[in-house]
Amino acid sequence: MDLSLATWLVIAVAIALANLPFLNEKLFGFIPLPAAGRGESPGAVRAKPFALRLLELLGLYFVVGLLGWWLESRIGNVFPQTWEFYAITGCLFLVLAFPGFVLRYLKR
């Protein structure tokens, strides 16, 4: 795999995973949340709280980071990163999550 393909793969996966918490009600896209109370039917869909969506977004940020690290290690040497790299990529991941946030909370 060449560098250009690996770069575009990480970007595409980052866009998909950044929007995943806002586009479905399951944890990480496939773990259903338990029903909230006794009065709910067993098949009822429970809405994820916003804090859980943010924690899921943080976890998916690390998944994308691990994918990028793995692809970088397969291409050549892994370069050491400082806190600035993680601050910038974290902000970029939040920007990539904005379309899902708009669809979930702002568009009625």
Rank of each mutant, 00 (worst) to 15 (best):
M1I: 09
S4R: 10
S4K: 11
S4L: 13
S4V: 10
L5W: 15
L5P: 01
L5K: 14
A6S: 12
T7S: 08
W8V: 09
W8F: 15
W8E: 08
W8R: 12
W8P: 01
L9C: 12
L9D: 05
V10S: 10
I11M: 10
V13E: 04
V13F: 12
A14D: 03
A14M: 05
A14S: 09
A16Q: 04
L17T: 05
L17M: 12
L17S: 06
A18K: 02
A18M: 04
N19Y: 13
N19V: 07
L20V: 01
P21T: 03
P21E: 04
P21R: 04
P21Y: 07
F22K: 04
F22D: 04
F22T: 03
F22N: 07
L23M: 15
L23C: 11
N24D: 07
N24R: 03
N24Q: 08
N24E: 03
N24M: 02
E25W: 09
E25D: 12
E25G: 01
E25K: 06
K26W: 09
L27D: 05
F28M: 12
L33W: 06
L33F: 05
P34Y: 11
A36D: 09
A36P: 11
A36Y: 09
G37I: 00
G37N: 07
R38Q: 09
G39V: 02
E40D: 14
E40Y: 14
S41P: 02
P42C: 08
P42D: 08
G43Q: 09
A47R: 15
K48G: 03
A51C: 08
L52A: 14
R53L: 11
R53P: 01
L54K: 03
L55S: 11
L55V: 13
L55R: 08
L55N: 06
E56D: 04
L57M: 07
L58H: 06
L60G: 09
L60H: 13
Y61Q: 09
F62M: 13
V64A: 14
V64Q: 11
G65W: 15
G65D: 12
L67K: 11
G68D: 12
W69P: 00
W69C: 05
W70A: 13
L71E: 08
L71M: 08
L71T: 05
S73Q: 13
I75T: 13
N77L: 13
V78G: 05
F79T: 02
F79M: 02
P80Q: 12
P80G: 08
Q81I: 00
W83S: 01
E84Y: 10
F85R: 01
Y86K: 00
Y86A: 01
I88M: 05
I88K: 06
T89D: 02
T89I: 03
T89R: 07
L92A: 12
F93Y: 15
L94Q: 04
L94R: 02
L94A: 10
V95C: 10
V95N: 02
L96Q: 06
L96I: 06
A97M: 05
A97W: 10
A97H: 05
F98G: 00
P99I: 09
G100W: 05
G100E: 02
G100K: 02
V102L: 11
V102P: 00
V102C: 04
L103Q: 13
R104G: 02
K107F: 13
K107P: 00
R108Y: 08
